Amino acid sequence: MLPFILKRLGLALLVALTVSFISFSLLFLSGDPAAALAGETASGEDVEAIRRLYGFDRPMLVQYGEWLFSAVQGDFGESYYFKLPVASLIAERLQVTMLLGVCGILFALLTAVPLGVAAAIRPNSLIDRVALFLSVAGQAMPSFWFGLILIVVFAIQLGWLPPSGAATWRHFIMPTIVLGYYAMPAIMRLTRAGMLDVLNSDFIRTARAKGAGEGRVLFKHALRNAIIPVVSLAAVQMGFMLGGSIVVESVFALHGAGFLAWESIARNDLPTVQALILVFSMFYIVFTFLADVLNAWLDPRMRSS
């Protein structure tokens, strides 16, 4: 198990280094950052002054090396717009996004996995059709529209939940449902397909022939094998929820890291944009690494391969 973990860890570090260089380079390939900071009405002398002030006149590899060295130490510079350290700014906003992402993926897993298992046990039944309907509706329904519908029904008409903000746990109920519902269809379909495939396997028939109870067959033998691709998908979905929650945060006025990314892009706040791209990418890499380790524990064949 240890050689597998070390191999995956080395691959994760290599991917992280590549992503950091690409994310740093894209901001310069999109245009002249000095001209963007100076504004459309700035003169050539003003642009050159800003280029020298922020070090944009140096080679890009030198800038990248200095930025990466500081980023490893937790120093992402100072925000051009907020005039605050980028690290503290992201840490403050990331709490909301992390809480929303964890709640969203838990809601998706606790809803989609049981529905997928139930649909696989009874194919073409009512529960299977309900799962199919929820899957299709989740893919077809835009998250911002779903969020607005929940606000109209549960906040305005019924008055059960607050429409926006992040003051109490009740403020996170509707955003959690919206964010989690977006991930439900893929998890549900993958769980159903995996269970159908495993339930028709020889080792399941052997377990039943030996007199194993149906619950033991379903959860110890079938679900353990069918859940392996779901773990990988959940890791990807969790990374997406953290990096792509900007729509949900905007609809429900949750000023998290996703909303901060939109603010920074709109205001040409390059240090904050660079740091956010790196942080969100690291989440993807870490979750994928943890999913690989968990899958290797669930399926020993992955360690030898």
Results as ranks from 00 to 15, higher is better:
Met174Pro: 00
Ala183Trp: 08
Val152Tyr: 14
Ala209Ile: 04
Ala235Ser: 13
Leu106Gln: 01
Arg122Phe: 14
Arg189Tyr: 01
Asp128Leu: 09
Tyr182Asn: 09
Thr176Ala: 01
Tyr182Phe: 11
Asn225Asp: 03
Arg170Gly: 12
Glu214Ala: 10
Val130Thr: 11
Gly215Pro: 08
Val198His: 02
Thr111Pro: 02
Phe133Pro: 07
Val102Gly: 07
Met241Asn: 07
Ile227Thr: 03
Phe172Val: 02
Ala120Lys: 07
Leu150Val: 14
Tyr182Leu: 12
Gly147Val: 00
Gly239Phe: 13
Val152Ser: 14
Leu126Asn: 09
Ser232Trp: 09
Ile187Lys: 01
Ile177His: 00
Ala118Tyr: 12
Ser135Gln: 09
Gly159Met: 05
Val153Arg: 09
Gly180Met: 04
Met238Thr: 13
Asn200Asp: 11
Met184Trp: 09
Phe172Asn: 01
Leu199Asp: 06
Ser232Val: 07
Leu106Pro: 01
Val130Met: 13
Pro229Phe: 04
Val236Arg: 03
Ile173Lys: 12
Arg205Val: 03
Val198Ala: 05
Ala120Arg: 04
Thr168Gln: 11
Gly194Gln: 06
Asn200Gln: 13
Ala207Ile: 03
Val153His: 06
Leu242Lys: 03
Leu115Ala: 10
Gly116Ile: 01
Ser232Met: 12
Pro123Tyr: 04
Arg224Pro: 00
Gly116Gln: 01
Gly101Cys: 05
Gly215Met: 05
Tyr182Thr: 14
Ala131Trp: 01
Ser232Asn: 14
Thr176Gln: 00
Ala131His: 02
Tyr182Arg: 14
Arg208Phe: 11
Pro114Trp: 01
Leu150Phe: 15
Leu148Ile: 15
Pro229Ser: 06
Phe219Gln: 02
Ile127Leu: 15
Ala183Met: 09
Pro162Met: 15
Met188Ser: 00
Val102Asn: 05
Pro142Gln: 10
Val113His: 03
Val117Tyr: 03
Met195Tyr: 01
